[in-house]
Amino acid sequence: MHRPKDAVERLEEAVRWIHRLYLASVMHVEALEDAGVLPGSSEREAAEIDRELHFRLMSAQIDQLGYVPKGLAKRAEIRREMAAQGAALAEQSNSRPSRSARALARAEGPVRSA
């Protein structure tokens, strides 16, 4: 069966996207295992369900496509992206005073009476 080229390209891109999600969910499960989170805990079970869901979606899309496309993500790419996101969040939180720092600044201001 012949499919239009743009439909095939969209499906390949969808496979690449869901593969990234699957790989990230696998890495999350592994991180929980390394952190000693026990099987059966709600956090671990949620991560396992995410991993299984992403795997099934990826498998279904690969079956529909009929082959595994080139250009799938690698763990190192995911790690770099996660590190960059973490650094951006850390920078963002460092640039804004925390709630306690803002409260302290307000408390140190002049006291006005009514």
Rank of each mutant, 00 (worst) to 15 (best):
Q85P: 03
M27T: 01
R44M: 15
M27L: 12
E52D: 03
A90S: 06
H28E: 12
S25E: 12
E108Q: 13
S93E: 03
A35V: 00
E12R: 01
V8L: 04
S41T: 10
A105C: 11
L65W: 06
W17R: 14
L53K: 09
D63M: 00
S59F: 02
E12Q: 09
R80K: 06
R96A: 10
D63G: 00
S41D: 15
L21T: 11
L23C: 11
A103P: 01
G66L: 10
L32H: 07
E13F: 05
E9T: 13
M1H: 01
L104V: 02
A103R: 06
A107L: 13
R99Q: 12
A24L: 12
S42Q: 04
R16V: 00
A7C: 14
E77A: 10
A35M: 02
A105E: 14
D50F: 09
Q61D: 13
W17H: 08
L53C: 03
S93R: 07
Q61H: 14
H19K: 11
H54M: 12
E52F: 04
E48Q: 12
D50K: 05
S59E: 08
V15Y: 02
Y67D: 10
S100R: 00
H2W: 12
D63C: 06
S59M: 06
G71F: 00
R102D: 07
Q61I: 09
K70M: 08
A47T: 04
S100N: 01
G36R: 01
E48I: 08
E108V: 07
S113K: 03
A87Q: 15
K74H: 15
L53I: 08
R44K: 10
H2C: 07
H54C: 10
A60G: 14
P110S: 06
K70W: 03
Q92P: 03
E52K: 02
A73G: 11
E9C: 10
